[in-house]
């Protein structure tokens, strides 16, 4: 029967290692431009990445351009909102991300607009770009020209001081509480307790378990916070040096609280998307 146990164990680990792969069909990003359908030339990608990098440097908005082979059975709207959610395009709190999703085989395009950009890139504007700027080029099969022209228009809209359309209802979402932490830290000592108090001595074991539980959770908390503090300070001081060397402002707002300055230094870097969110705003079309 031992082999059966081993087999089951093996199957369990197999299942555990395979499951996340099955569950996660959406790709990971590597840069602003992610040409999964392979319709751009390497030179074009490089150039566009640089443009989007300097766009982020000047406006802090993050624009992702993605081409995909297959919609994985989803509508382009669903795919876009899921991808946006997974990647977190745009800065956290500002939600100023924009996703241009192109499915060449399905002949579909979508602009998914982050909450923060909805007043600037309205659905009407997004639809106009798709109909009047992207489609004429895409119908000729020129993906690069269509994409470039669309990004040019986006740059005009995002430029500081550009006229914004009449305000429509914008949405303000806030507040995400780390309740998991509360539950975790209040539950942990009890679990430890339950374990340790199962010794032979009735009182002493219980008390020892209790104290040990308290000490262990306290130490864990202390250690965790200590490491967090170290990391925080490390990042902050590194960014401070970065900003200093670039003669950029180091006050709270100018440095965005000390974060997110890395990667902008070269003018061509990409430091990952910032955790922005979207709520289905934008437009899509089929050509």
């Amino acid at each position: 029967m031992r082999w059966l146990g081993r087999l089951l164990l093996f199957l369990f680990f197999l299942a555990v290692s395979v499951l996340p792969v099955l569950a996660q069909k959406l790709p990971d990003y590597s840069n602003y431009v992610n040409d999964f359908a392979d319709v751009y030339s390497p030179q074009f990608e490089l150039d566009l990445n640089q443009q989007l990098s300097s766009l982020e440097a000047s406006t802090s908005s993050q624009v992702a351009v993605v081409t995909i082979k297959s919609l994985e059975g989803l509508s382009i709207e669903e795919y876009a909102v899921k991808l946006f959610e997974k990647w977190g395009i745009g800065q956290k709190g500002q939600d100023n991300g924009l996703l241009l999703l192109i499915a060449p085989d399905d002949r579909e395009v979508r602009f998914e607009v982050g909450y923060g950009l909805e007043p600037i890139i309205t659905d009407g504007r997004a639809g106009e770009i798709i109909r009047n700027i992207i489609f004429p080029e895409f119908k000729k099969g020129d993906y690069q020209a269509g994409t470039q022209a669309a990004i040019n228009q986006v740059k005009i809209y995002l430029a500081p001081g550009a006229p914004t359309p009449a305000p429509s209802s914008s949405v303000d979402l806030g507040q995400a509480l780390p309740i998991i932490l509360i539950i975790l830290f209040s539950g942990l000592p009890i679990y430890l307790l339950a374990y340790l108090s199962r010794s032979k001595e009735f009182f002493t074991g219980g008390v020892a378990g209790l104290i040990l539980g308290l000490v262990v959770s306290g130490v864990l908390l202390g250690l965790g916070l200590g490491i967090f503090g170290l990391l925080l300070d490390f990042i902050l001081s590194r960014n401070y040096k970065n900003l200093k060397s670039q003669k950029l402002p180091t006050n709270f707002w100018g440095s965005r609280g000390g974060f997110w300055s890395g990667g902008r230094s070269g003018g061509g870097g990409f430091s990952g998307f910032g955790g922005g969110r979207s709520g289905g705003g934008g437009a899509s079309g089929k050509w």
């Binding site: 309205t122 659905d123 009407g124 997004a126 639809g127 106009e128 109909r131 429509s168 289905g280 705003g281 934008g282 437009a283 899509s284």
Partner: peptide, 10 residues
């Protein structure tokens, strides 16, 4: 068309 876009977006 713009209105349709706004409506579709909504």
């Amino acid at each position: 068309n713009r209105l349709i876009d706004e409506l579709a977006g909504t």
